[in-house]
Design a protein around this nucleic acid. Structure first.
Lengths: 137, 137
DNA sequence: ATAGTTAGTTAGCCTAACTAACTATATGTC
DNA sequence: GACATATAGTTAGTTAGGCTAACTAACTAT
């Protein structure tokens, strides 16, 4: 029976391998990783403030200000005034931002799927079950 | 039976979650992510040239030149002339670099282990087995 | 010898992270 | 109502880390 520390180790190297492979697909997105990741929070989590974005992405407020400015520059997100608080603004993805994110995400998933191609189907299925059991995804 | 595309999706979000959590530990390392990652190649893969490092890390040659300069600055790695090729130099970790990397790696693994704490022991074990079966780790 | 390739560096540009210091708005207390 | 304080966000400046282009030095093949 594998110890938790062994599993942590395996999970660590697999996570590195998987994301490194997936990230290769991001080059075609025409947008940097920080912007892409923030956009994904907007698309899947819905519109939110700069502060909320910053804490979701674990970066400082000024950093998120710039990331959002970058997204606005390329019309991938827009801001509107918050009805509740004049200091805040609400950031939301545009249709273009939504589309870009979907494309980027699919490209990533195709990459990861390719990594699984060489493994036995039932091992992959077991991995899926185990991930669901442990992480609830 | 889970389809490969579902498993890819789960693997994607788990990998993001795991590495985001692990990365929090890196702040205490006192060294940036690119340097830390290059150092780990040196420690686990053994001494190698700038070019080999660059291709292992999937960055350009000039980028790796700078990363190695950073490592040298903090005495985490040293270079010596290649005996075979006067154009090349061999980069190797110092004792300090080795120690720093071990500490950083252990801190990461402890973080990931903490993520597994809330899951059932047998589910974690199954995850370990599945990772081994699919990725050979 | 010389033409071409390879290893690495330098220069210059961008993104993305930080802290410190600022503005503007909210809020709580007297 | 006025003042102190907290909060949301921006601006300024630094550093790390990514790129391409252009270069030098050294190796290789003809």
């Amino acid at each position: 029976m594998a110890r938790a520390s062994d599993v942590a180790d395996r999970l660590h190297s697999v996570a590195i391998r998987v994301l490194r492979h997936a990230r290769e697909a991001d080059r075609e997105a025409g947008i940097g990783p920080a912007r892409l990741s923030a956009l994904s929070v907007l698309v899947y989590g819905g519109p939110c403030t700069i502060s909320e974005l910053a804490s979701a992405e674990q970066v400082s407020l000024p950093t998120m200000t710039r990331i959002v400015q970058g997204l606005e520059q390329f019309s991938l997100a827009r801001r509107k005034a918050s009805p509740a608080d004049a200091r805040s603004s609400i950031v939301a993805p545009t249709a273009k931002g939504n589309a870009l994110l979907q494309r980027a995400r699919n490209a990533r998933l195709r990459r990861i799927e390719a990594l699984l191609k060489s493994a036995k189907t039932e091992d992959v299925a077991r991995l899926g079950d185990a991930l669901a059991a442990v992480f609830g995804v």
